[in-house]
Design a protein around this nucleic acid. Structure first.
Lengths: 329, 329
DNA sequence: TTGAAAGCGCTACCAC
DNA sequence: GTGGTAGCGCTTTCAA
């Protein structure tokens, strides 16, 4: 069932059927009615592919992310998908697992499909800057990085001020009377580095000597956090506050500390990052940073849409996370 | 940069270029080499849209789900996406919010894009059976339901035996010495109904009188669970075991009970469903049912692929959830 | 082994 | 207002 069949049924030309379909140009009401009846009679659906052939777009965008199962990413994906689907776009989701090879594979296929735009979620994609030939594959496509930056003409950014956010936590804990803070650094990406930097800078601003020596490296997650707690204790360093780069790790740290008889928050304050659902489920409930993934997702969507539709793009503002104080501090 | 440009550069015809591109038919090695050089020189990318025009497929499928942010769904989406992207397909994700109108909108646009297949995640989509005109929109497209069933020629199912699973929990608790079980029913979809049925059947099989009177209705989530705990206590019914349809609600129930001085598991056993990450984070850690979303997603992907590629489709087997015993029982 | 040509189903232009 | 027609960039068939 194509446009020719409809034209035949309605006893007119495909041009006129096209006009009716797209509400473009004037059509004699009688003919319009005949066409609409034919459309309904055959339950006609125009081929988006044929349309795309002419218009050079299938009205679809793609989101690349390390892993949809990470709630923090899923929250952004949700917002972006809703925003674009409201505009008639479809959203393709790609799990790259953080592998540059996977990224390359996806870029190739997405470029062939002439996707209208791309959102890359996670600062891991900053690494792309070292692979110009991979970037070259999508040089025609506007790309927005969520909390990342790549210096390339078609790449745009929405940033989260992770450094400042962690500085805020440092101040909050020191102002609350804690004396000896330590930091658990649990991921290697640029965002994690920025957080770590925030910790070090925050301590420096408060004249704490040798802040670097107060950073512990751990594996991400519950187990990683528990191990980190052990290590901190074992190090012999005095501590009454533990800042973590991720909620899950922070929860592990709390578990580990409690197991060793520390009371939270009486003996030690613990903070996380991401304001995940888990932060409300652990005991005590976790003080954490809300880095506003919905806002971030919304701004990425907005920026990408403006770029695709060639409106002057929005001014680039960094998102400021907010401290959510709960019982762990 | 299209196939004509390449043909011109390589001094041959587009037919030959096409043969080289698709590795079909024999090509003189010399010409092949010229073509390959031209391909590389111009960094040529075939247009998937033009290809789709001829082949009637863009090699893409779509997943409809209530909400990607639900971890349980995200886990299935991940597996399905990986499976299909390995086969060169792209995966479009659609958040319907459980609204039939949204579903209709997505179906229309996906049908126009001639998507190759559809996975519907969540038993909420069982409701589609009441909307034949919506189903009609995708009558050409193979559809797989994850834990759902719709009686229509192009619809296929992979089921989870929720009823049996909850019966297992009932037996486990009774065998463990618990005497008075109650059930917290927190969602309205078919899967939730099946679980509730499992509870009632389970008690009947053990000759417990009036099992229906032991079912409490609650709102989903932490707050819902806490309220449910209050209600159970207020009802005056004796109880030493609470089964819940969802982990998050179960965690709320535990919180509520603990607040009223009940010890878990000493005074009351609590169980959830889904084996979510949260079940390992709450205290005590939650005994729950692992309903194997990865397996379910994998089987859906397999079934859909077989159907799309018209291989004899796999036998329909129901997935059996497994009890994960932790400290809450 | 190669190339010419006919489509795929649409949109957009132009002539009437 | 309307309809004919030229593409869009491929794949596939058929003849050479």
């Amino acid at each position: 069932m194509n446009i020719y069949d409809i034209a035949a049924e309605a006893n007119t030309s495909i041009s006129t059927v096209s006009r009716v379909l797209n509400n473009k140009g004037n059509v004699n009401p009688q003919i319009r009615k005949r066409v609409e009846e034919a459309l309904k009679k055959y339950d006609y659906k125009p081929s988006a592919i044929a349309r795309g052939m002419v218009s050079k777009t299938m009205k679809s965008i793609a989101i690349l992310t390390i892993d949809v199962r990470v709630t923090h990413y899923a929250r952004m994906i949700y917002v972006i998908e809703q925003e674009f689907s409201n505009q008639g776009y479809n959203v393709t989701v790609c799990n790259t697992g953080g592998s540059i090879g996977e990224c390359d594979r996806y870029f190739k296929i997405l470029a062939e499909k002439q996707i209208d735009g791309l959102v890359l979620i996670g600062s891991i994609f900053n690494n792309l800057i070292h692979y110009p030939q991979i970037i070259a594959q999508i040089k025609e496509i506007p790309v927005v990085l969520a909390n990342g930056h790549v210096d390339s003409p078609n790449f745009y950014s929405v940033l989260v001020d992770d450094t400042k956010a962690i500085r805020t936590v440092v101040d909050y804990l020191l102002d609350g009377g804690r004396k000896n803070l330590v930091y658990v650094f649990d991921l290697e990406n640029d965002s994690a580095q920025a957080k770590r930097r925030g910790f070090v800078e925050g301590l420096k601003l408060r004249d704490v000597p040798q802040p670097e020596s107060r950073v512990f490296t751990a594996a991400y997650g519950l187990e990683g956090g528990m191990k980190a707690a052990e290590e901190i204790i074992r190090s012999g360093i005095p501590f009454d506050g533990v800042l973590c780069g991720e909620d899950t790790t922070a929860i592990g740290v709390m578990k580990g500390l409690k197991k060793q008889g520390y009371r939270i928050p009486e003996d030690v304050a613990v903070t996380g990052c991401n304001n995940s659902p888990e932060a409300r489920i652990c005991e005590p409930e976790l003080t954490t940073l809300d880095n506003k993934p919905e806002l971030l997702g919304g701004m990425c969507a907005q920026l990408l849409r403006d770029t695709i539709e060639k409106k002057g793009s929005a001014v680039s503002v960094a998102i400021q996370p907010e401290l959510v104080v709960r019982q762990s501090t």
